[in-house]
């Protein structure tokens, strides 16, 4: 997928963006409940619905971070309450290994969070998101896309060393 899509974001002060993967039966429903109860919380989260926290592929987490999320939140049913019996345990096991890997790659542990939020815990959606936004605000941007651009500056410099390279690249992309 190579669409270039214009961003809707205008030049405002930086605010953290969280991608949240919520399971359909508990946490997504809890977020709906927070809405129905008109609880106000920080708007920085973008929620993606999956049927079960067991569906959350670690690749999704990495993709979200590498596409510019400042943090990723996983929400699932409490242990023992999974709609699919044990998907949340798989999510928990993956979470701990992925978390170690992210820390190893220099990503602060506060940027990746797993919470059990049952369908009745609308208030927990609110407190968890508010809390995470506050922590990310303190950490500042993760900003992998921009970093990647910065990494590639060194490549631009080298292009100059190859005679007529640009010409070829243009030709190659016609």
């Amino acid at each position: 997928m190579n669409e270039t899509i214009e961003t809707t974001q205008t030049a405002q002060p930086w605010r953290p963006r969280i991608v949240a993967f919520f399971c359909n039966w508990c946490t997504y429903t809890a977020a709906d409940l927070a809405g129905v109860s008109r609880m106000k919380y920080a708007p920085n989260t973008r929620i993606i619905r999956v049927m079960c926290s067991g569906r959350i592929d670690p690749q999704f987490v990495l993709e979200a971070l590498s596409e510019g999320a400042d943090g990723v939140l996983i929400g699932g049913c409490h242990p023992g309450d999974c709609h699919y019996a044990e998907g949340n345990y798989k999510a928990l096991r993956r979470f701990h290994l992925l978390r170690r890997m992210l820390i190893g790659m220099g990503i602060d542990e506060k940027r990746f969070r797993l919470e059990w939020i049952s369908a009745s815990e609308g208030d927990k959606v609110k407190t968890v998101i508010n809390d995470m936004v506050e922590q990310l605000q303190q950490l500042g941007p993760l900003d992998i896309p921009a970093r990647r651009k910065a990494w590639d500056v060194e490549l631009e410099e080298a292009k100059a060393q190859v005679p007529r390279y640009e010409e070829f690249e243009e030709a190659a992309h016609v």
Binding site: G68, D108, P141, A146
Partner: peptide, 13 residues
């Protein structure tokens, strides 16, 4: 992606 090596923040935020 160490925090220290990145001073962050460009226009797209």
């Amino acid at each position: 992606l160490s925090q220290s090596s990145w001073t962050g923040g460009t226009s797209h935020h």
